[in-house]
Design a protein around this nucleic acid. Structure first.
Lengths: 192, 192
DNA sequence: CCTTTCATTGAATATATATTCATTATATAG
DNA sequence: CTATATAATGAATATATATTCAATGAAAGG
């Protein structure tokens, strides 16, 4: 293995260990010593790969916001079907890819957490899924596939459930994952 | 106002400020200086009321686990109606009582957070609402009022939604609160 | 092989933050 | 009113943790 490959692998190990620890304990409660221990390296060495704990965190946020889970593609699909597809896709990814589950939960935790650096807040500001979904919910209400009610509140309910489930599965991968359909029923209009 | 009343009032101010800050930033990221600033007192004085930051946090957890939101009363009621009552009651409390909303979100955050002291973990260990609800969900499935599916997964979905909504409303009281009925529809069996 | 580069270490340093304490201000109780 | 208790302060101290750095080891490339 070349030096460059070694370096990249080491970097990935640190990022993965950092992701798990930041998710479980939060930024401030995670010691660089914890991360170094998790990877199996000395603290000093960790600083050869990342300038600071803050920069490591930033890098994870950067990866998170560019990942598939943060993408809300424009769509012409029927709104409720769109939410079904999003829920199916996310829950499937969460169930089958531990890294994706952790990253999804991490980003949503980072969004809520105040006191992040300016850089991090800037990266995260683009993510406001709850607000972005409101027009789609209105469209679904217009064609009677989504129930009546405050669209913002409906978006909060739907995404709270998705994010909460993701956190649970990320922290306890052995727990059974709920079905997407159940969550979509938060939005679905009752027949008649 | 007597000295004793003064002291009690001051103590309550510290607890309330601490609750808000711990909820927003987490234990480690919250500085005693932040709490003192929020109350409008010097750091030194804060230590006349609480032995340490840790003890202040413990006291909040103690209050939280003894509060109404942690109570899962035994019941003979029809299971789905029970979940309807719980959702109604909690969401109403969360909507109308900021302290309750914050406390509910705080306790659920504390439960997930690793690295708490032994004392705190002991206090929190009694709370495992998700597991406690499983028998009730099975009963509801037996009488066809709750949909088929893994009861544990159903409990996760239901409580993830409730907790997520509580966190959202606690952090942004101006946001519209979802209806209890929408959340209960995660569990509700479809007609026929 | 051997050399040279770079990964790696852990102790030393810098920094941030919890906690203490000597002192001052305030207000209660008598 | 005054004496006294206690509320209050903020600078000093202790401690924990991030970051640096000089020294060592290993292995890639010649």
């Amino acid at each position: 293995m070349s030096r460059a490959e070694q370096k990249e692998k080491r970097r990935a190990q640190i990022l993965d260990a950092g992701l798990g620890l930041f998710l479980r304990k939060g930024f401030a409660a995670t010691k660089v010593q914890d991360i170094a221990d998790a990877v199996g390296m000395s603290v000093g060495l960790l600083f050869n790969y990342f300038e600071s704990k803050e920069k490591l965190y930033e890098e994870l946020v950067r990866i998170g916001v560019s990942g598939p889970q943060s993408v809300m593609p424009a769509t012409d699909a029927e709104p409720l079907e769109y939410f079904e597809a999003v829920a199916e896709g996310l829950l499937h990814a969460i169930r089958s890819q531990p890294f994706t589950a952790k990253m999804f939960a991490f980003v949503n935790q980072a969004v809520r957490n105040e006191g992040a650096s300016e850089t991090v807040r800037g990266l995260l500001s683009q993510i406001d899924t709850i607000t972005q979904c409101i027009p789609l919910i209105k469209a679904g209400q217009a064609n009677k596939t989504i129930r009546a009610g405050n669209p913002y509140a409906l978006s909060i309910a739907f995404w709270s459930a998705i994010v909460g489930i993701a956190e649970m599965i990320a922290l306890e991968p052995a727990a059974p994952c709920p079905e997407a359909e159940w969550v979509v029923d938060i939005l679905r209009a009752k027949p008649q």
